[in-house]
Simulated scan of single mutants.
Amino acid sequence: MSLRISIFPLTGAILFPELQLPLHIFEPRYRAMVGDALARDRLIGMIQPTDEIEGAPLYDVGCIGKIDDVETSEDGRYNIVLTGQSRFRLIRELEVSTPFRQAEVELIEEPAEEYLTLGERASFEHESRKFADSQGYSIDWDSVARLDDVSLINGVSQIAPFDSAAKQALLEAPDLRTRCDLLVQLMEFFGKSDPDDDRVTLQ
C-alpha cells in the first residue's frame, strides 16, 4: 500500500508506532504543513534528512505520526504531539508547489506479538543502568520495569542521546530483538564517552 504524505525532515528526531513525540513548530513552511494536516487527515511523516543542508536527500525509513494534541499561539506557532501510526519506506519525493516537502511512501508491516526472553530483558536493563550511570542520568527504574518489551525498546530508541545515523539504524531495525541488540551495542559504544564532551571514543 502506498500513499502520499507531507513530510517533516528533522535531524535527530525519530518516531515509533504507538509512541508520542512533542514538537514546537515555528518555521512558516512547517506551520503551513501542520495547518494543512489539521484540515485533512492530521498525518505527518517524520523522517530524517541524510545531511543538515537545505533540501538534503532523505533516509529510506520514517514513521507517520497523527496529531493528537495541538496548541496554537497568537503568532501562529504550534505545539503539537504526534502519536506514531506506522513506519514507512520512502518510494520517492514528489515535486510540489507547497512550501513543505511531500513524498510517496509505502507502509511497513510490523511483526506481531514481539517480546524478549527474560534473559534478554534482564541483560538490556543491566546495560541500560550502566549507560545511565556513566552519563549521569536519573531514571525511575521501577517505572521502567513496568513497561512492556516493545514500549521499552522503542521508547529508549526514540529518546536515546545517539547521533542521527545510530537513531536511524534503530528505526530501520526489522524486529524487536535486532533493535534490542543494536541498542546494547550503541550503549556500550556511546557509554565510553565523557557526558560533558561531544566526542565519542572507543578507548
Rank of each mutant, 00 (worst) to 15 (best):
E120I: 01
E113K: 15
G191T: 00
V70N: 01
L38T: 07
D194K: 06
A13E: 04
P174F: 03
K192G: 07
L186N: 02
R129A: 12
D197N: 15
I7Y: 14
Y30K: 02
L170I: 03
E109S: 12
E120C: 02
S123I: 01
A160G: 14
F100G: 12
D41M: 10
Q185T: 10
I14E: 11
A132W: 01
T178P: 05
S151E: 13
F88S: 03
A132V: 02
R31A: 06
L202Y: 10
Q20G: 01
D60A: 14
D194Y: 05
T178N: 12
A160E: 08
R177Q: 08
I139L: 12
F131D: 02
E52T: 15
I139Q: 09
I64K: 07
L43K: 14
D194H: 11
G55L: 01
G76V: 10
D175Q: 04
E110P: 04
E52R: 15
S97F: 00
I5E: 07
P111D: 11
E172T: 09
R92W: 00
R179P: 04
D60E: 15
F26A: 10
F16L: 11
E71K: 11
V184F: 00
S151N: 11
N154Q: 15
L186C: 00
E120P: 07
E114I: 10
I153W: 10
E188K: 02
Q48N: 06
L147N: 11
S157C: 03
E172P: 00
A103T: 09
E110L: 09
G136T: 08
G119M: 06
Y137R: 11
E172R: 07
F162Q: 08
I91N: 12
F189P: 00
S123R: 12
L21D: 04
M33D: 06
E125Q: 14
D198V: 13
T98A: 14
D149H: 15
V105I: 15
S2Y: 04
Y137L: 15
L23Y: 06
L183A: 01
M1V: 13
R121K: 12
G12N: 13
Q48C: 07
D196V: 00
V200L: 12
E52M: 13
G62R: 05
R4G: 00
S134N: 07
R40K: 15
V61G: 02
I64D: 01
S2W: 00
Y115F: 11
G76T: 10
I25H: 05
A122H: 07
E109H: 05
I91Y: 00
E114C: 04
Q158L: 01
G191N: 00
P111Y: 11
A39H: 06
I64R: 06
L182P: 05
Q203E: 15
S6E: 08
L10I: 14
G191K: 00
A145E: 12
A145V: 05
L82D: 05
P161F: 07
L19E: 13
L58V: 06
T11E: 14
I14R: 05
I91P: 00
E120H: 04
A13Y: 11
F190G: 00
V70A: 08
E104R: 08
I64M: 14
L15V: 02
V200F: 14
P111E: 12
T117K: 09
S73K: 10
D68L: 01
